[in-house]
Design a protein around this nucleic acid. Structure first.
Length: 856
RNA sequence: GCCCGCGUGGUGGAAUGGUAGACACAGGAGACUUAAAAUCUCCAGGCCCCUGGGCCGUGCCGGUUCGAGUCCGGCCGCGGGUACCA
């Protein structure tokens, strides 16, 4: 009898699959198609346990679908443009291209031993000119259709390095290298008109039945449809050309609680005022310092500047409100101006208290009469809009009504009286795609003094990145590359300059799923292939992409339909989405003399007398039980090492086994060893079964019944992404099988079924067991087993009996027993009789097949 | 700040509103062995009387329900996103 030797088994069966071309996607054979896709990785160079888990999940689905008779497309590629390559070049002097491609080679090397059912012939990286050239063609088609345009937008500007910073390169409002305070600077940049599709992108979410509800909710909130009132305040003494300020509010019902008018520092009125008022100019300049993120803006201390101007309240010609420039008002949203109602907005209240502005409640709580009013020092009263409130300074609708009703009534009233109009607005902004960086897809346009912005001719694509660049000075090397930058105008032929901005890497990942259907076509897609393979039937990736990547991809699919690159049916490109959790690992840390944490590799610590100590020094380490694997914390487990020690099947089995797929999984060495032990056990059981005596035995039926139950449960587990539950079921079935007194034939049939059920998770071991037990051909080519309904029938069931909702006893009844019979049996139970003490039960609830509850 | 999740034994976790703790890890006891490894069998949420049972228990507080880990409201803690990390 041979021992379980993962290394040789895995190599053998991987070769067999390659030989049989088991994973080459074809459109032949008249089978239904299934497209399973995991979010492609950034080529950091190191395959991570999180990747292993992500790809194993996709692999389970892909292999299961192959077994159920589908043509399966399961491709892999690399999201290869982006900042880390440039950072590496700056840090160690290499070239982003060399760094990236060498990392890709390394990662493919690490991925292949996992035995994933990938069609490697379709692999590409987004930094391949073949790919980004087609992306440039898409850009030009989008431009042609008016889906792209240019406008000004702010960036993080590092005034010392004279360069644009990404948000993550700004720490506490300072540039990460220079340490200089970051400024917000406007540049002319390219934008996709995604906000034009806001309504459609929002409404279509309702049709995404197989997406997680939380992702749909996040997207809905991100797009953010709001109904409000747009109206103007008359400016009483404004500068030349400014006699009114347009305001948008979602709470027009609070108009009589207005306390001040706030405008963005970037509002045209603020810009006009700062021209001849140095104090205002200084304040606006101060506001423009710091990072551009929403988080930074929201968390910053609320600051305002009283312009000295006033506006007239639209309802009362004697009521003037002061005009403040305020740092928390965004020019991007609404009109860049708001009226402050401190009684019903926490931010406005903070502002009003700081600048001693009046606080006037418009409505009060209908339920909680004792609450302190904001004018008396209480908190701002901001109930849900669906809650009924009592309007004390209302002007439209009933005195007691919900906020929603109050808003609707206020809009109607204002429209009737010529004070503005109801407007629907969206929070979603257009997608800025310009990046002032080298390692990205060049934007294929040319700037000509005579012709303006001229699209590059399609026959000149790809506009390839030049290789001869250096990163020794900050900034975009394309800007200072004369032979690349200087070119002829495609329209008039005169000297012109290339656009030196490259595209946001989100563009690269917004259509790669479509490109996989025809990865080498000389147009962005091949419509016949796209028609056949799209949509992605199952998309799998991290929850961190819930909003941006998925929303951008949904936009791109629509834009690609408009430009003729995808069929109408592919407008929503992902039929089903699954978001998996992270792989975490304990962190072992000690502290140095200065109290700073020192991190230790798992291999460098050991347990002694219940404490974890650093092996080399004996020093006791603090254990942070579960943290996202991160290089800087030294808690990364290298999949290559696990595969080398235990084999790919063990790694695959473990990452699926302990945690539900959508949750984080904690990697533990003990868990991996246990997985390895279990797989050896399966191998041993299979060897025993192969050798066991023929002939029927008494245990046959019981075993076969369990087999059919396992088939039912595991199939359901796989289909519902309950991989951990499926594995728990496989453990249980393996235990049954190991203890079974059944004869050889029943054991072999059960073990073959076990091999098939395990095959999506542990494909190599399954092939080995399958062949050991005389299975025909490859497991991957065998038809998925079917549970026999007749074998699943149970004739008795144990029902718990509750008395007043607490479990007190149980009875065994026939599966088909009527409610009356069950009730009679339950009431006759001595525990029930005792509890009733001779009186009749108040109520008896019988849930057939589930429970009995007697209320006494 | 705002939006979205998550929180169950020593540990990872299971549980269509219906027996809380399946399955596994670590642990304990035993079998086999000269011994160890491997393997196999059994025990195992906490507390209390111990035949049988009783009480408590799913982050905290409250609510709905015959019945709540699950639904609702409010807190606390952790994680993801926050438009230039991918």
């Amino acid at each position: 009898m041979s021992r379980y030797d993962a290394a040789s088994i895995e190599a053998k069966w991987q070769e067999a699959w390659t030989e049989a071309e088991s994973f080459t996607a074809t459109m032949e054979g008249g089978k239904p198609k299934y497209y399973v896709l995991e979010m492609f990785p950034y080529p950091s160079g190191k395959l991570h346990m999180g990747h292993v888990r992500n790809y194993t999940m996709g692999d389970v689905i892909a292999r299961y679908k192959i077994s159920t008779g589908h043509n399966v497309l399961h491709p892999m590629g690399f999201d290869a443009f982006g900042m880390p390559a440039e950072n590496a070049a700056m840090a160690s002097g290499g070239h982003p291209k060399d760094w990236t491609y060498s990392n890709i080679d390394d990662m493919v090397e690490q991925m292949k031993p996992l035995g994933l059912s990938l069609d490697w012939s379709r692999m590409f990286a987004t930094c391949d000119p073949e790919y980004y050239g087609q992306q440039q063609a898409l850009f030009l088609d989008f431009l042609d259709q008016g889906l792209v345009y240019r406008k000004n937008a702010v960036v993080n500007w590092d005034p010392v390095d004279m360069t644009v910073l990404a948000n993550e390169q700004v720490e506490d409002g300072k540039g990460w290298r220079s340490g200089a305070e970051v400024e917000r600077r406007e540049l002319t940049q390219w934008f996709f008109r995604i906000s034009d599709m806001a309504e459609e992108l929002l409404d279509a979410i309702d049709g995404l039945d197989d997406w997680p509800a939380k992702v749909k909710l996040m997207q809905q909130n991100w797009i953010g449809r709001s109904r409000g009132l747009q109206f103007a305040f008359g400016l009483t003494d404004g500068p030349e050309g400014f006699d009114r300020v347009e305001v948008y509010t979602t709470r027009p019902d609070t108009l009589l609680g207005a306390s001040f008018l706030g405008i963005s520092p970037d509002h045209p009125l603020a810009r006009a005022l700062e021209k001849d008022n140095p104090e205002i100019a200084a304040f606006c300049a101060e506001c423009r310092k710091g990072a551009t993120t929403e988080e930074a803006l929201e968390k910053a201390e609320k600051k305002g500047f009283d312009t000295g101007l006033t506006v007239r309240h639209p309802f009362d010609t004697a009521w003037d409100l002061p005009v403040y420039i305020a740092n928390f008002i965004l020019m991007d949203y609404g009109t860049g101006a708001i009226f402050g109602c401190p009684a019903h907005d926490a931010r406005d209240l903070e502002f009003a208290r700081k600048y001693e502005l009046p606080v006037t409640s418009v409505f009060a709580s209908a339920e909680d009469e004792g609450r302190t009013m904001p004018e008396d020092g209480g908190e701002a009263y901001v109930p849900p809009k669906s809650e009924r409130v009592i309007y004390v300074r209302g002007f439209a609708g009933e005195t007691e009504q919900t906020g929603e009703e109050g808003i609707d009534a206020a809009i109607a009233f204002c429209e009737d009286n010529g004070v503005g109009q109801g407007v629907t607005k969206f929070r979603l902004r257009d997608w800025g795609l310009s990046r002032q960086r080298y390692w990205g897809c060049p934007i294929p346009v040319v700037h000509c003094e005579a012709c303006g912005v001229v699209p590059e001719k399609k026959e000149n694509l790809p506009v390839e990145l030049p290789y001869d660049v250096s990163f020794d000075t900050p900034g975009n090397p394309l800007d200072r590359h004369p032979t690349w930058r200087d070119c002829a105008c495609p329209a008039c032929g005169r000297p012109a300059k290339r656009e030196t901005d490259t595209m946001d890497t989100f563009v690269d990942s917004s259509w790669y799923f479509a490109r996989f259907t025809a990865p080498h076509a000389d147009t962005p897609t091949d419509l016949a292939a796209a028609q056949y393979w799209m949509n992605v039937d199952q998309y799998i990736g991290g929850i961190e992409h819930a909003i941006l990547h998925l929303l951008y991809s949904r936009f791109f699919a629509r834009a690609m339909h408009i430009t003729g690159h995808l069929p109408e049916s592919a407008k929503e490109p992902f039929n089903a989405l699954f978001t998996q959790g992270m792989v975490t690992h304990a962190i072992y840390q000690t502290r140095d003399a200065n109290g700073r944490p020192v991190y230790h590799y798992p291999a460098d610590v050991e347990e002694r007398d219940g404490a974890v100590v650093v092996r080399a020094t004996g020093e006791q380490a603090e254990v942070v039980p579960s943290a996202k694997m991160s290089k800087s914390k030294n808690n990364v487990v290298d999949p290559a090492e696990i595969v080398a020690n235990f084999g790919a099947d063990t790694a695959r089995w473990f990452v699926l086994s302990d945690s539900p797929p959508e949750r984080d999984v904690e990697w533990t060495a003990a868990g991996a060893e246990a997985a390895a032990r279990h797989l050896s056990r399966v191998h041993r059981i299979a060897s025993d079964a192969a050798a066991s005596e023929d002939g029927p035995q008494a245990g046959d039926e019981a075993l076969l019944k369990e087999m059919h139950k396992a088939i039912r449960d595991v199939t359901l587990g796989i289909e519902s992404f309950g991989f951990n539950a499926a594995i728990a079921r496989l453990y249980a079935f393996t235990n049954t099988l190991a203890k079974s007194k059944a004869g050889g034939e029943a054991k072999r049939a059960s073990t073959r079924a076990l091999a098939q059920l395990m095959a999506p998770m542990t494909p190599h071991l399954s092939e080995e067991v399958w062949s050991l037990l005389g299975g025909k051909g490859l497991v991957i080519a065998a038809e998925w087993p079917q549970a026999d309904e007749a074998m699943l029938v149970e004739n008795a069931v144990t029902l718990p009996i509750q008395i007043n909702g607490k479990r007190r006893a149980e009875i065994s009844v026939a599966t088909d027993a009527s409610k009356e019979e069950v009730e009679k049996l339950a009431l006759g139970h001595h525990a029930v009789v005792k509890a009733l003490e001779g009186s009749a039960p108040k109520k008896v609830i019988v849930v057939p097949g589930r429970i009995v509850n007697v209320v006494v």
